[in-house]
């Protein structure tokens, strides 16, 4: 039996321990904010926080998540008003929006560790997250806004 904490609540799993965390969160728990994009760590759509650090849930097994605290986009802020979420809305970042949960989880992890990233650091930290619609310029602007208020 695997136990983990997702968005503050304890969860149990007695199925296949090699199941990717992504499908546990989405299909077994029903938290669909975390998205599937590639299944192999290439795109970042599935990004969640594990002990506060951004990880790819498609490439993290439940065995690896055992005993850990996981935060998904639904748990990032109770009212959806994390500074990154607010900045995203201020800049009207999304096009289709599908990649944006992952982008926001990646960006919030970045600024938790580095409250004032440079443009270079933003680009580097966000380079694992693909946006097929091409919202990159606004993502960069929004991360910058979230950290500077400007």
């Amino acid at each position: 039996m695997i136990t983990l904490v997702v968005n503050g609540r304890e969860q149990h799993w007695d199925g296949d321990p090699s199941l990717p965390l992504l499908w546990f969160i989405r299909d077994e728990m029903g938290l669909t904010g975390t998205k599937f994009g590639c299944g192999h760590g290439f795109c970042g759509s599935c990004t969640v926080h594990l002990e506060g650090i951004a990880v790819r849930s498609c490439s993290t097994t439940l065995a690896e998540a055992a005993g850990k605290r996981i935060t998904t986009i639904e748990g990032l802020d109770p009212a959806g008003n994390h500074p990154v979420q607010k900045a995203w809305r201020e800049v009207n970042v999304p096009q289709c929006g599908y990649c944006q949960s992952g982008q926001i989880m990646q960006a919030s992890s970045l600024i938790a560790r580095n409250p004032h990233p440079s443009h270079e650091e933003i680009r580097e930290a966000m380079a694992g997250n693909i946006c097929r619609c091409g919202c990159y310029q606004r993502i960069e602007t929004a991360v910058h806004l979230a950290t500077t208020g400007a």
Binding site: T32, T34, I73, P94
Partner: peptide, 20 residues
Amino acid sequence: GIVDLHDITTGRAMYGIDTR
């Protein structure tokens, strides 16, 4: 802003993959 902006930024927007 786009009508789905708040839902998108909070993970509540419903895509094809999200039907249950």
